[in-house]
């Protein structure tokens, strides 16, 4: 897509979308949203970027390899927090009992492990969607060669 309007608009919009995505991810324990929604928003920004410029520009920002590593990493954060709770001596995915600081309800840094987990989920979802987008687009490219 070589349209100059789209490029300009998306160049302006993308940072805001990403910021919003991060906000939704990080406030997962306080307001509606969370890892999944935020991750989807974040991924949408990257997809928008890649669509309005082109694929190579998109992969320059976030390469296929990096996104697939992040994909595993996000899930590992989730599972790792659960296992950490076990190591700290409570049940799997235990939170307060495992000694994570709960903070003051309503603050950003509250909810103990939940925030970290949400963050992991966000990374996972975003990178998964980006990876999927890349592989679908690349698949399309192959068949045309």
């Amino acid at each position: 897509m070589e349209d100059i309007i789209v490029r300009y608009i998306s160049r302006i919009i993308v940072p805001f979308v990403q910021l919003y995505g991060l906000y939704v991810i990080l406030h997962g324990h306080l307001s509606p949203g969370g890892g999944f929604s935020g991750g989807a928003i974040f991924a949408a920004s990257m997809i928008l970027y890649a669509l309005s410029f082109n694929l190579s520009a998109g992969t320059k920002k976030l390469s296929h390899d990096v996104s697939s590593v992040l994909e595993s990493g996000g899930a590992l954060i989730f599972a790792g927090m659960g296992l950490l709770a076990v190591l700290l001596g409570t049940n799997f995915l235990g939170n307060r009992a495992a000694g994570f600081p709960l903070g003051i309800p309503g603050n950003l840094f509250s909810g103990g492990a939940i925030m970290v987990i949400t963050f992991g989920v966000g990374i996972k979802v975003a990178s998964t969607m980006i990876t999927l987008f890349y592989s679908l687009i690349e698949g399309e490219g192959h068949s045309h060669d």
């Binding site: 595993s72 990493g73 590992l76 599972a79 296992l83 076990v86 049940n91 799997f92 995915l93």
Partner: peptide, 23 residues
């Protein structure tokens, strides 16, 4: 005591680790 959960979670954990390992 956590084996019920670990039985499920450990394969799950390593499943995600596996692409990294393969790399």
């Amino acid at each position: 005591a956590h084996l019920p959960a670990l039985t499920v979670v450990v394969p799950l954990f390593f499943a995600y680790l596996m692409p990294l390992l393969a790399r």
